[in-house]
Amino acid sequence: MSARSRKKNTVVADMFPGMADRVSKRPPKAEVEPEALTLDEAIARAHAIVDRVLAAFPVVATVGLFSGGNDSVVVNHLFRARVNAVAHVNTGTGIPATTQHVRDVTAAWGLRLHELHPKHSYADLVMGRVIASRGPNAGIRPVWKGFPGPAGHGVMYRRLKDEPLQRLRGELLGGRGRGRNVVYLSGMRWAETDRRFRNAEEVDREGSLIWVCPIVHFTDAHMREYRARYRCALPHQHAEHHLCTPDALPLNEVTAHLHMSGECLCGAFAKPGELDEIAFFYPEVAQQKRDLEKEAEAAGIPACKWGQRPPGGRKNGGAGRLCKKCDGKVEGQTDLLAEWRESGLISDSQYDTFTRHDAA
């Protein structure tokens, strides 16, 4: 099967198991020029990155960050024998099936799960019930009001994701003193998006928190081969989450349905029609958003529609470190067509025909 890609930074070639692949250009934050690696070599490189960090810093705990998405499941599967625990941020905005998937998988692996929750709910942020505690607006104005749109993404990321992770860092460090560190393993990759190509790096130290992206050099071809190697494809009745063998790579049904983890649906960068897609598979989740829309509209909030740019809003408020597809670009039908092609639902020639029509 051809693995021709429309992404700018991935190799355009026919890939077969055991072949080497690499990111075609040097990412700005890469320490050296990427070299072509087979999957086994890429796996060895991932372990070497973590080994280097653990040798260089006194580490209290190594925690795998598990959103439930395709990349996070690979990094946690790869390092499940090396982490002390797994962390999942239950933002309260997402699809409950994804959180249940994470719970079930970590239990099957025998790992401790830190299920984190934001201090303030998404509904409270949208309705303007979270009042600023610092700065010139302290005690006076809300930190945000209305559905976010691109300009509000930074607020949503900090409140819904980053704050719970920072709180966990503090809990893990406890009173252990200065100079101790917590390692978070994430599934960011240079080949995911242009933003990740520009900003992702193997190791990013933030005070006592060390963000490590051990599979940052994995290409899309590496990811396909890893899934083919470890995910059960036998013609039988699969166990829940495809955990048919001890080494099996789990499958989250949400990613199969929506092609995203669905753990955070703040709507800041939602594509047109996304809520309808969610409603098709998970109507109760979409209904929660629509009920909140009605509440916001009744309260006279101008930004009362999920997934729409608020009236007069700034163009872009930036994307969070862990938000895979929140880069300010609206993803189109081509992304779904690529998924269909890779899974064999359409042929290469059909893909080319559809994408030529889309570009016309």
Rank of each mutant, 00 (worst) to 15 (best):
A3M: 11
R4A: 14
S5N: 04
S5L: 04
R6C: 07
K7V: 04
K7H: 10
N9Q: 10
V12P: 14
M15F: 13
M15E: 15
R26E: 13
K29A: 06
T38H: 07
L39Q: 08
A42I: 10
I49E: 02
F66N: 02
N70Y: 08
V73R: 15
N76R: 10
A81R: 15
V83D: 02
V89Y: 00
N90K: 05
G92V: 13
Q100A: 02
R103A: 07
D104I: 08
A107T: 09
H117C: 11
L125W: 00
R129K: 15
I131T: 14
A132Q: 05
G135Y: 06
P136L: 08
P142Y: 00
W144N: 00
G152C: 03
H153S: 06
V155H: 11
Q166R: 14
Q166T: 08
Q166C: 15
L172C: 07
L173H: 03
G174M: 01
N181Y: 15
L185D: 02
S186V: 06
W190I: 02
A191Y: 03
D194I: 01
N199H: 09
E206M: 00
W211C: 01
I215L: 01
T219D: 02
T219G: 00
Y226K: 00
R227N: 12
R227D: 09
A233N: 10
Q237M: 06
E240L: 14
D247L: 07
E263A: 14
L265P: 08
L265C: 03
C266Y: 03
P272D: 08
G273C: 11
G273Q: 12
L275G: 02
E277A: 15
K289N: 07
D291P: 06
A296N: 03
A296E: 06
P302V: 01
C304F: 05
G318M: 02
K324R: 09
D327C: 00
K329M: 12
E331Q: 14
Q333K: 10
D335V: 03
W340P: 02
I346D: 00
Q350D: 08
T353C: 13
H357W: 13
H357G: 09
A360F: 05
